[in-house]
């Protein structure tokens, strides 16, 4: 099945959840965040879609004024087709339903995106930082991240201003 057919199948079952946009790539589908858990269960269990492998969850900061996004890459071992799903979040309070119960690897991938961007995955059993220490301040991969001055008494030096890359 190609992307258009998969999109049609999702729109059939959950009308109004797919957002159309021009700068989407070939295999990308943008969804609204509200019915995400039900849509995720549908794409895993429907025998025509059967996306049983969650390949990657990427968090993205699209810029200072724009939103945060989570992108999920799925793959089906049986039908050998792929899809990429984009969900945008509001910058002040980014949150979306967690899919760790459906694909077990969602647990650690969502913890990592939470650690780097601060996106809260509701329904996650144990959402805490995974790479940075538990008492780290700030969300490192956001574009407006300012590092902290001291960590347990060790000084973290600030970078000198560069002239920019050629």
């Amino acid at each position: 099945m190609n992307t258009a057919e998969i999109k049609a199948a999702i729109m059939d079952q959950f009308p109004g959840s797919v957002l159309e946009s021009e700068d989407l790539g070939e295999s990308q589908v943008e969804l609204k965040a509200d019915q995400w858990f039900e849509i995720a269960t549908f794409i895993k269990e429907n025998p025509n879609l059967s996306f049983d492998q969650l390949e990657c969850i990427t968090g993205i900061d699209l810029g200072e004024e724009a939103s945060l996004q989570t992108r999920y890459n799925f793959h089906s071992m049986e039908h050998r087709h792929k899809i990429e799903i984009l969900i945008s979040h509001d910058r002040k309070e980014p949150k979306v339903a967690s899919i760790e119960k459906i694909w077990r690897i969602g647990d650690w991938f969502e913890r990592e995106t939470y650690d780097m961007f601060g996106i809260v995955y509701e329904g996650h059993s144990d959402l805490r930082r995974i790479l940075c220490p538990d008492d780290w301040e700030g969300w490192p991969l956001r574009k407006d991240y300012e590092g902290q001055e001291l960590y347990h008494g060790i000084v973290i030096p600030k970078m000198k201003e560069e002239d920019g890359w050629e």
Binding site: E55, C56, I60, R71, N73, R104, I105, W108, W165
Partner: peptide, 29 residues
């Protein structure tokens, strides 16, 4: 499966490079 998710915005500097590492998923189980 080592995966790279690369987003470019037309400049010589990448906007986002995410490395999907196979050992991360192996350790989670």
């Amino acid at each position: 499966d080592l995966g790279y998710y690369i987003i470019s915005d037309g400049t010589p500097v990448p906007s986002r490079v995410k490395m999907r590492s196979p050992a991360f998923t192996a350790l989670s189980c």
